[in-house]
Write a protein that binds this DNA or RNA. Structure first.
Length: 317
DNA sequence: ATGGTTTTTACTGCGTC
DNA sequence: GACGCGGTAAAAACCAT
């Protein structure tokens, strides 16, 4: 995966070159990533220089490295040699029976040695749980790396001691999402990790208390709108209108204490009506994971907040 | 634990296709 | 009649104290 050169700005990408999934633009972070596989199309706003043009020493050594990139996801950071179970040698030729059995034995022992101490074993267990949950939610790999990093830190600071592994794994993943601005609810992550909502919240608190944590602002309504739009094939025009509505509304007067999800659902609903797309409240509520009642209530408040002028265009102007 | 706020559940009535 | 929409009351969930 190489960064793609910018051609026509953000509008240039619609479809993921890897999995043909939908590319979501994230203006705030200045990048665009694939909804399905997390493929980052580019992050040109932050650094417009393509990687392979940066010829300083560090970059050069980075590109000259051999083997897999160093990753925090694996307990040994992916630095060790893997013995494959394909039964072929380095030239792709099939091995004879004896060599194959020997390779199998080596692989087995490698596995045992790698996770020899209980500490390492539990670490690798936790990291694989994080990985599994991230997989279910199809989170970008950057988030997975961040979550692994957070979990390692929690182990280092002794706050994961005698705590549920899946609980701390879920908490790490959630914190990673918050930090990277990926809008996933604690509920979703708890579900993916197979633990109770309540427990996930508890472990997240424990994690926050233990690890140094700058204030992480909650996701904006705009993020919820994008999330909702991306759940189903909705005309992008509707998203634009919804975002504009959100921007133009005096939000502080109606949003305090309300779930952003409900507000976002209402914006999308109104936007759809204004764009004559007419998505039923029932569907909007479903995508936004709120109730129709909540959508209605938010709609009432938004519409009461300001006047929407609609100019009907006629054939004679 | 408690009290205030918000969301959900469940139900009803209205208009339209 | 099925569907979408709007509303209400009460239960449940949530949150700060």
């Amino acid at each position: 995966m190489y960064p793609i050169r910018r051609e026509g700005g953000l509008a240039g990408f619609k479809e993921c070159p890897i999995c043909r999934g939908r590319i979501i633009e994230d203006m705030e972070k200045g990048e665009a990533l694939c909804q399905r596989c997390g493929y980052v199309a580019f992050d040109q706003v932050i650094d417009s220089t393509p990687e392979w043009r940066s010829m300083d020493y560090e970059e050069r050594t980075k590109r000259m490295r051999v083997g897999m990139p160093n990753t925090l996801r694996l307990a040994d950071r992916g630095l060790s040699t893997e013995i494959s179970s394909e039964g072929r040698d380095s030239h792709g030729r099939y091995l004879d029976l004896e060599s194959r059995q020997s390779a199998q034995r080596m692989k087995k022992w490698q596995q045992r040695l790698r996770t020899s101490t209980s500490r390492e074993r539990s670490l690798s267990n936790a990291l694989s749980r994080i990985s599994e949950a991230a997989d279910v939610l199809s989170l970008p790999s950057a988030v997975l790396e961040e979550a692994s990093h957070i979990f390692r830190k929690s182990v280092k600071h002794n706050i994961s001691k005698s705590k549920s592994v899946s609980g701390m794994a879920a908490a790490s993943l959630y914190l990673a999402c918050r930090k990277s601005g990926v809008n996933r609810s604690l509920k979703e992550i708890a579900q993916a990790a197979g633990i109770k909502n309540r427990d996930a919240a508890r472990f997240y608190r424990i994690l926050l208390n233990g690890v140094e944590s700058p204030y992480i602002p909650p996701p904006t309504v705009q993020k919820y709108i994008s999330k909702l739009i991306n759940k189903e094939k909705i005309n992008p025009r509707v998203e634009r209108v919804a975002l504009e509505l959100a921007d133009r509304t005096n939000e502080s007067s109606i949003s305090s204490g309300k779930t952003p999800a409900g507000l976002a659902a209402a914006y999308v609903y109104i936007a759809a009506v204004l764009s004559s797309e007419h998505i039923p409240q029932r569907e909007i509520a479903e995508y936004g994971e709120v109730t129709e009642v909540t959508v209605r209530n938010r709609c009432r408040e938004i519409l009461g907040n300001f006047v929407i002028r609609v100019r009907l265009r006629t054939s004679n102007g």
